[in-house]
């Protein structure tokens, strides 16, 4: 394994929660961010007494400064482990997802946030469940489980179950290749309305770029088992690429309607710097 990848993330809105952390929070407490003046009787903390404000006050009372406390959040990776994720050459998409999970866990630990992972295919995969916690090694264990996973089941029906379980404030990464009808996402995204959702779209180079050789390619869908034979030739390659672009536009359009920008991983490896840039641009 190469050097540990790390990216920087931030949230677009204030989060609740009393666990101190690095993100702008809604709860009051120790912090540098001024929130309001309140009466000493309401908040009996003489250390925060603001003499100037008290003198200026019309009601002749002692005022205490109250500031907001920065909050720690939980990061969840919802990983699609349906059969289509096992596709990819030379490394499967599941391996790339594992790389991402590992980087995510490391980054979360560095930020003092909790990391958790839930996996799903046609139902929730409890055997891959990693509860949200502050741990340096949790993500490595979770990533290793993904790398050695034998996926056979089709479908993404389990997404709604896992989405319901993380339906609170925080950052949720939806890791999938999104090879399913996008309306299947609607209910899950509704569950996740309070969270910041980042779709990580993992596509393998073999999917997006047709083989260069002119050949007959008998293909079988790993999930549905249906078959189609393609005669690879220049005109078909053009149609292939345009189909990929259409799908990309479709995904961007679908998430765009919810003000979410998907993050594409297409060149066979997860790039943490690109992920950092994504958060700078989006948030």
């Amino acid at each position: 394994m190469s050097a540990q990848q790390e990216f920087h993330y931030r949230l677009s809105r204030r989060v609740g929660g009393h666990r101190p952390g690095a993100h702008a929070g809604t709860s009051l407490g120790t912090g540098l961010e001024f929130a309001a003046h309140v009466s000493l009787f309401d908040r009996p903390d003489p250390r925060r007494l603001d003499v100037r404000a008290s003198l200026r006050s019309n009601r002749d009372e002692w005022l205490v400064r109250v500031s907001r406390q920065r909050a720690g959040i939980a990061l969840h990776a919802l990983v699609d482990v349906s059969a289509s994720m096992s596709f990819g050459a030379p490394r499967s998409k599941l391996h790339i997802a594992a790389d991402f999970v590992e980087a995510l866990g490391f980054s979360a630990f560095r930020m003092g946030d909790l990391f958790g992972m839930l996996a799903f295919d046609s139902e929730e995969r409890t055997d891959l469940y990693a509860p949200a916690r502050l741990s340096r090694g949790a993500s490595s264990v979770a990533a290793e489980k993904l790398r050695t996973l034998e996926t056979t089941r089709a479908g993404v029906a389990g997404l709604e179950q896992v989405a319901a379980r993380v339906a609170r404030q925080g950052l949720v990464f939806l890791v999938s290749d999104f090879h399913f009808p996008l309306p299947q996402l609607t209910l899950a995204l509704d569950f996740l309305a309070h969270a910041d959702v980042v779709p990580i779209v993992i596509w393998d180079a073999a999917e997006t770029e047709p083989p260069t050789r002119n050949a007959i390619a008998p293909l079988e869908d790993v999930e549905s088992g249906s078959r189609r034979t393609l005669w690879l030739r220049p005109s078909l390659r053009a149609r292939w690429r345009s189909a990929v672009e259409m799908r990309r536009a479709e995904i961007e359009g679908y998430f765009g309607a919810r003000s979410i920008r998907p993050f594409f991983v297409e060149d066979g490896r997860f790039d943490a710097d690109a992920m950092s840039r994504y958060f700078f641009e989006v948030v």
Partner: peptide
């Protein structure tokens, strides 16, 4: 056959069929 992740987004090809 070659396994492929998802056929539904690939174009249909009459010549291939």
């Amino acid at each position: 056959t070659l396994a492929y992740s998802s056929l539904f987004w690939l174009p249909r090809d009459r010549a291939g069929q």
